[in-house]
Design a protein around this nucleic acid. Sequence first.
DNA 1: GGCGATTTAGTTGTGCACAACTTAATTGTG
DNA 2: CACAATTAAGTTGTGCACAACTAAATCGCC
Lengths: 169, 169
Amino acid sequence: MDTPRTVRDEDFLRLDHQICFSLHAATRAFNSVYRTALKDLGLTYPQYLVMLVLWEHGELPVKRIGEHLRLDSGTLSPLLKRLEAAGYVERRRSAEDERSVTARPTPAGTELRERALGVPRRIAAATGMRLEEVRELRARLNELTTALDAAESAAYPDGCATEDDTAGG
Amino acid sequence: MDTPRTVRDEDFLRLDHQICFSLHAATRAFNSVYRTALKDLGLTYPQYLVMLVLWEHGELPVKRIGEHLRLDSGTLSPLLKRLEAAGYVERRRSAEDERSVTARPTPAGTELRERALGVPRRIAAATGMRLEEVRELRARLNELTTALDAAESAAYPDGCATEDDTAGG
DNA sequence: GGCGATTTAGTTGTGCACAACTTAATTGTG
DNA sequence: CACAATTAAGTTGTGCACAACTAAATCGCC
C-alpha cells in the first residue's frame, strides 16, 4: 500500500505549519528561559552546552566537542574563542597531532561549574514536567532526530547504502 | 512538601544536558531537512513559515505575522525585505494607520504556494512518524512552550502577581 | 622518500533570533 | 488643542548555525 491518502496536501500544509513550528517555538522558549538563568554566569546557552561537555570530559579536541553537540568548527571556533576571552577555557594545539586543538576549563571555568549547579533545577521547574515526562519527551525527540538525520543522509547518498533502516521505530 | 530530593544537582546537570539538548538537536535536524526541501523554492525555513502565514491569511501587518510566529520586528523586518527582494511579497504602509506596514504575497509568491505543496509530505515522510504521533508530540511541545513562557514571565513580574501558579504540574 | 587524499581548525559570508534603541504615528488625558 | 504615553517598524550590535572555502598537518600508497 502506497501512503494512505487520508490527508490532502492542503491540510498537510497547515498541519506541517503546526508541528515543526511547535518545535521551533519550544526551542526558542527554552532558549529564553536559559538566557535568564545563565545571565549571572555570563554564558549563552550554546556556551553552557560546551561547558557541560568540558566539565564532564575534561580536555577535549574541538572535533570531539563538535561530535557531542553536533556542531562544526565554523560554530565552535568563534564560540570557544569567546569562552577563552571570558577566561573559562584554555585552548592549545595538541602535541601529538598538530592539526588538533584541545579545549579545557581554566580554574575559573571549573569554579563556574559550582555556580551552574542550580541551573538545571531552575529549568526543570520552569518546564513544569515530571522526570518521567521529561524522559519520555527526550526519547521521542531523539527518535525524531535519528529519523530526520537518516532521511537527510538518504537524500544525499554519499556512501553507505540506506537499506531502509529508518523503519526502526 | 518541598520538591522530593530524589535527584542530586550533579545528576540533574547531566539529565539537563540531555533533555534540552535533544530539543536543540531535533530543531536543527528539522532545519536541515527543510533546507534541503526548500532549496528549490529559494526559501529558508523561517521565510517558509512567513509564507505559510501569508498564504493562509492574505495581507497582514508585520505585527500580526509576528504574533503568529512569535517573532518581533527585529527578525521580521529584514526577513520580509529579503522576501520582497526575491519578489515573493509586497510591503506597504497601511493607509488607516501609518505606523503599520502590511505584507502580502505577490503573484509570484502566490504561485510559489503550488510548488510548496509537496514540501510537508516530504517532511512528514522524513520524520517517519504517523499522524497520531505527530499530534501527540506537538501537543507536548505546546504544553512545554506554554509552561516555559509562564515561568519566564513570572521571572519578570511586570504586571500580574505571580502567586506561585507555576505549581501546576 | 614523495605525493595525493584525508583530516582538523579556522575564516568568510549569509541568515536567523533577540536585546536595546530610534523614529514616527496614534491614543488618551487634562 | 497640547502633550505624555503607547504602539509599530525599523536599526544596530551580538551571537549562533551552517555552507563553502583555506591552511596546515597527517596518512596512505606507490
